[in-house]
Design a protein around this nucleic acid. Structure first.
Lengths: 313, 313
DNA sequence: CATGGTGGCGCTCATATGAGCACCGTGTCA
DNA sequence: TGACACGGTGCTCATATGAGCGCCACCATG
């Protein structure tokens, strides 16, 4: 009797089929085939080693759940969602991410949580896709930016989210970037503004975008002049989220320019239970990686290409 | 909190990934994720139900082990081997089947077994592919046929197998088909022939081809004249193997013509421990099905198309 | 012929797992 | 408000499973 021939192979397949495809127990299989349960176990092991059994985690609709799970495990995230975006233009990708993020948020939030939202194109997209939310207060985290292509500001974002949740909206009217520290301080002294920013202390969940500190990759970057951009680069800034700057290890920085921004303090951010970042594009990987490593975000909604880069060593 | 969103999906994927891809126990996973082992079990169940986990039995080289296992289970066979033959011509298919059958035989036979071989094109191909065999006697089961394309007869087949195994060859020189019953009887009285056929009683394993009772699908069919062909068809013959005729339920028949054939008795055939049939081509399915249902064969080496038909209900 | 190595097999016993149940918080309806 | 159904959870206990071990047949040497 010569071993390892086709009969052995087919026996392994027969056992694997019964166990994995018809999920019957090893004892059952052993009885049926008249062999010991130990032999069944060994046959299964051999079948797996030989590569006879192929197991994969399948994509579900637009979600690549396998990549998601890998991301979640790799960075110890609370939540990770990878959206499969069949090479579409940036706008379509943003919309898909927004939908996924909206679903995630609706699932993650519980009555009594407090949601914080900054201005961000991706956050805007998410709020646009929101259908329903548990009852939560919604807090504005940054000043407003009026961009030519967007007819919505931080205030509108927060209002819409609050309307959907049925909770209270904490808003204030102020620009994201002021011309001087003095103007910014003056604004912060306004009761409406200070109350709004104080509410941020109660926030449990925030949804943010992440900007890479490079031209065209961060709204704030593009709002500053060349000298300031360079200064922050020299200071080690690789990215920002909700107006909080951080370096390549994810450590928050407080550059002088920050005093001119209407945004939350890095320490407030770190008090949130979960910060969910919605980001797309491989280009942003360095900033996202830094934010992850610094523990600035605990949730991630990204497109597949970015996920791939984040997982590549 | 709204259920069944992306977070739930990703959680299921995370659990499935850990369990199936990194095969860690449910208890381990439960500890790591901080949930109960029961919840892990339920998540896995949900993941499987949802189709999130995909398990398949993979083809191995030329063998479709999954189809093989299905065939084996379906017909309660001792052995089944399905060969993947990427739509080649009949000759190439025959050669591949022969190789698979040779490997199977080498694996199945044990010292002391007795191998019986009839004349058949597929058996000829198998013997040609044989490289080594355990020590077994080899017994000729049918008379010889000289076909224009084949320079080998039953005698040569048996001799070659015996040489490879190192066992004794039991051969006799006689044609497969005689002109009259009287000639056949006379031949059977020859000591050399009768001794050969008697040795068949000790056979434990036989490898045979299966002929479908139709033009071009059975060597014996084509050797008879039109009247006889029709007579057997009327008698219910759907196929033959090793010169034994059978009907559509696999019951052996003994038509008058059989007396003119130099072959074994149906009863002798049923005394063999395992009869392995080597067959290819969907066309032969009816004959193969009959032989299987009648319990005439316990082993099968077939090409994938035939296997598909045998499994289709 | 003795000797030791090797691989396959099935055992024991601790652990992992599944079936079924009880519990709890929630929502619904009278 | 109370009664009740329901989904989700973790428990108990019987069963299935895995790790490691010893047995035995086989084989290759001295």
């Amino acid at each position: 009797m010569i071993d390892e021939g086709p009969a052995e192979l087919v026996l392994q397949a027969a056992v694997a089929r019964r166990h994995y495809l018809q999920n019957r127990s090893k004892v059952e299989i052993a009885d049926e085939l008249g062999i010991s349960r130990f032999k069944v176990a060994r046959l299964l092991e051999a079948a797996r080693e030989r590569g006879l059994v192929r197991i994969e985690i399948v994509r579900q609709g637009a979600l690549d759940v396998d990549l998601s799970a890998q991301l979640q495990e790799r960075y110890g995230l609370g939540h990770a969602v990878v959206v499969e975006t069949a090479d579409q233009d940036a706008g379509a990708v943003r919309a898909q991410l927004g939908r996924a993020a909206a679903d995630l948020l609706a699932e993650v939030l519980t009555d009594g949580d407090v949601l914080g939202l900054p201005w961000s194109r991706n956050v805007h997209a998410m709020v646009g896709a929101l259908a329903r939310l548990p009852r939560t207060e919604v807090v504005q985290l940054t000043g407003a930016i009026a961009l030519p292509d967007f007819d919505s500001s931080a205030v509108d974002i927060v209002r819409r989210a609050a309307r959907l949740s049925g909770g209270r909206a904490h808003v204030f009217y102020a620009p994201f970037v002021l011309d001087t520290k003095a103007s910014a301080d003056a604004l912060r002294r306004q009761p409406a503004v200070s109350q709004g920013l104080e509410a941020a202390a109660r926030v449990t969940h925030a949804v943010v975008g992440i900007g890479l500190w490079a031209p065209g990759e961060s709204t704030i970057h593009d709002l500053l002049d060349a000298d300031e951009q360079a200064e922050l680069t020299r200071a080690g800034v690789v990215g920002e989220l909700a107006g909080v700057f951080f370096d390549k290890s994810g450590k928050p920085l407080r550059p002088k320019v920050a005093a001119r921004l209407m945004t939350i303090d890095p320490q407030v951010l770190s008090g949130f239970r979960e910060v969910i970042a919605v980001v797309s594009g491989e280009a942003k990987a360095p900033a996202v990686k830094a934010a992850l490593e610094g523990g600035l975000v605990q949730g991630l909604v990204v497109d597949a290409p970015l996920a791939q880069v984040l997982l590549a060593d």
